Computed example of a mutant assay.
Amino acid sequence: MTLTLSYPMVRNVGFDGVLVTFAETMSDPANRAALSFRAEVERLDLDGVLETSATLGSAYLRLDPARVTHADMAGTLKELLKTRDWYNTPLPSGRKLWRVPTVYGTDLAPQLEDAAQAAGLSPTEAVRRLSHSKVRVLTIGFAPGQPYLGPLGPEFNIPRLQDLTPMVPEGALVLAISQFVLFSGPTPTGWRHIGQTAFRCFRPDMTETFTLAPGDELLFEPVSRDDLERIRANNDDGLGGATFQEITP
């Protein structure tokens, strides 16, 4: 017998968590729903909710069990889910559009050609498409402040590498399964390193330690290696030459 799941779904997570899931796999509507639902929970300031977060297709709430039970919170959330079509709700306000200077390829990002070949494109065409792709911060995770960005076009639904790259630096732009990840620190990875920035996603010396927020949008605009070196020499704010503007609804 095949069990058919119905979404959105409200489930308990451990002693003090509730997870509202909008789809079994990541999709643009499910991510929009997760971001918008989480923002509405924050706006309502529900009693007993200590913190919230959003993933690729879910919203998570951590509760104070002394103030609210799982059952009562589940009932509140189910009623909130009925108030609108969350899959077609506009994204939350307060988001930013970032333009991030990026070197594609060269020895700074040596797996561009491999990624382009996997996508069935020339390196030049891959850079053209990637640099014109406005991607959204779908979620933040794996490392402090580190965003998963997408969705990219279906041609970039390429698999991860079978073997790990021993290390990529902070600011590395990597690609797999129709998403970017912008690395917040040096780390091994199975994603293809196709671009390099001087952008710091995690700035512990700043008031806002996470530079990006879920729902922000980014364009990774091509620059030369010399341009990037000049940016690195004057990068006191950690933004790597990036600029941003507020996204109006």
Rank of each mutant, 00 (worst) to 15 (best):
L3Q: 11
L3C: 03
S6I: 10
M9Y: 03
V10W: 13
R11P: 07
N12Q: 14
N12P: 04
V13F: 07
V13P: 00
G14W: 05
M26T: 11
S27F: 07
S27Y: 06
A30E: 01
N31F: 11
N31Y: 06
L35W: 04
L35V: 03
S36A: 13
F37L: 05
E40L: 12
V41F: 02
L44S: 01
D45L: 06
D47M: 06
T52D: 14
S53H: 01
G57K: 15
A59P: 03
Y60I: 06
P65Y: 02
P65T: 07
A66N: 15
R67G: 09
A71S: 13
D72I: 02
D72A: 13
M73V: 01
T76V: 09
L80P: 07
Y87W: 09
P92Y: 06
P92C: 05
G94E: 07
K96T: 04
L97A: 08
R99I: 11
P101Q: 07
G105T: 06
D107P: 01
L112A: 12
L112T: 06
E113K: 15
E113P: 02
D114V: 11
A118T: 09
G120C: 14
G120K: 14
G120P: 01
L121Y: 01
S122V: 11
P123G: 15
T124P: 00
E125N: 14
E125C: 08
A126Y: 04
R128P: 06
R129T: 05
V135R: 12
V135N: 06
R136G: 00
I140C: 09
G141S: 03
G141R: 00
F142M: 11
A143Q: 14
Q146W: 09
G153C: 09
G153T: 07
G153P: 01
P154E: 14
P154K: 12
E155D: 12
F156Y: 04
I158W: 02
R160W: 05
Q162H: 11
Q162S: 15
Q162W: 08
Q162I: 05
M167G: 08
P169K: 12
P169A: 09
E170W: 07
A172C: 05
L173P: 14
Q179C: 12
V181W: 03
V181H: 07
L182V: 04
G185V: 12
P186A: 10
P188R: 10
T189D: 10
G190H: 08
G195R: 04
Q196F: 01
Q196Y: 03
A198V: 10
F199Q: 06
F199Y: 15
F202Q: 04
P204I: 10
P204M: 09
D205G: 15
M206C: 04
T209E: 12
T211D: 02
E217I: 02
E221T: 12
V223P: 14
D227V: 14
E229R: 02
E229T: 08
E229M: 09
A233Y: 02
N234Y: 07
N234Q: 13
N235L: 08
G240K: 08
F244M: 07
F244I: 02
E246G: 01
I247F: 02
